[in-house]
Design a protein around this nucleic acid. Structure first.
Lengths: 187, 187
DNA sequence: AACAGACTACCTACCACAAGGTAGGTAGTC
DNA sequence: GACTACCTACCTTGTGGTAGGTAGTCTGTT
């Protein structure tokens, strides 16, 4: 792989945030696992908030790419949602929480910039889900039911929530992507 | 109200844990809002872990009482689950996360005792939900579908997940307790 | 009724250490 | 000569936690 120091820092710090949280990981931890001296981190990221921001921004960018790829590979709305479901589960199988969820948990202890980023991250995911739901309804794949906004909210809740429960109980996720059908078909 | 110092400490610390997380609140914060000197806290709770443990244990006891009361006030399984749903939402309307979710987020940074308590807390909730689901199936209120265990998992996921999204986006919860019907009716 | 001893609930003063961050330097590269 | 990517040495602040003291209360004995 041989990724540069900066990328190694972001990658390692992301893993720490998704397992221990933002407050509970330190530059000292990070320095040790990356194999660099603590103050050298400041060369790449002057403050911890800078590092946090970089992590979230790169993560959001990755999710945006995922969304684009899903749209490219799947035509139907249900197929797209199922693809997202599998993607979410795969990422939590790695023994980590979704980043947005982890951030949300300590929201009011975060620097303001990170709070806003977290908020925007959730909005972005909800907006995409809502658009997919809308499309599914227009194509007649499933009924409007309580509307695209609510269906989007319910699906994202389930995705986030199941990651947390799996993470905390170390049990394998018992659900599979048929759950998407259930939510979407609600009328 | 006039609650004793010990109870004030537990109550305040619980609120801090459910908004900032375990790592991000300090004895200094706590001392200030309770109106006591920092080292006096050690008189009631020798270590931070002791305090954390007390909080979670009392919280679990409260949830256990809630479960008992729900069973007493509602006969049907669906009615019981809907009651739980409303209870969950009411507690997150106060601008706080469910305690178990907040703990889960920083799981691997917690002292071992708290990790185990968190794990047990989730198991306890899942077990209760599973029993209620089982009962609903036996009474013919809804189909077995994917089974009581999976339905319990899905419902708890939704409960936890929606709390997080609400908390992070500050939007009002768009769902209502009809969502319980949807999950339960899955076949 | 009086008083000793123990106990409770706090206090001030302090400690070791770990946090994020800074100053200033060096070796290599463009 | 400037820039990048690191280094050592150090600083300030905040952390959980300790030592030891004091004022009040509760209890048992004389």
């Amino acid at each position: 792989m041989a990724l540069g120091t900066r990328d190694a820092l972001v990658q390692t710090a992301e893993a720490l945030m998704r397992t221990k949280g933002y407050a509970a990981f330190s530059y000292a931890d990070l320095a040790e696992t990356v194999g660099i001296r603590k103050p050298s981190i400041h060369h790449h990221f002057p403050t911890k908030e800078d590092l946090g921001t970089a992590i979230v921004e790169e993560y959001i960018e990755r999710v945006r790419d995922d969304f684009a790829q899903i749209e490219q590979q799947h035509e139907g709305a249900v197929a797209r949602l199922e693809a997202l479901f599998r993607l979410f589960r795969a990422s939590s199988d790695g023994g980590m929480l979704p980043l947005c969820g982890a951030l949300a948990a300590e929201m009011s202890a975060l620097p303001l910039g990170l709070q806003q980023l977290t908020h925007r991250f959730f909005d972005m995911q909800l907006k995409w889900l809502e658009a997919v739901m809308e499309r599914g309804m227009e194509r007649g794949e499933f009924p409007r039911g309580s509307g695209p906004k609510q269906k989007a909210f319910v699906l994202l809740s389930l995705l986030e929530g199941s990651s947390f429960i799996n993470w905390a109980t170390k049990a394998g996720d018992p659900t599979d992507d048929r759950i998407v059908q259930l939510i979407v078909q609600e009328s």
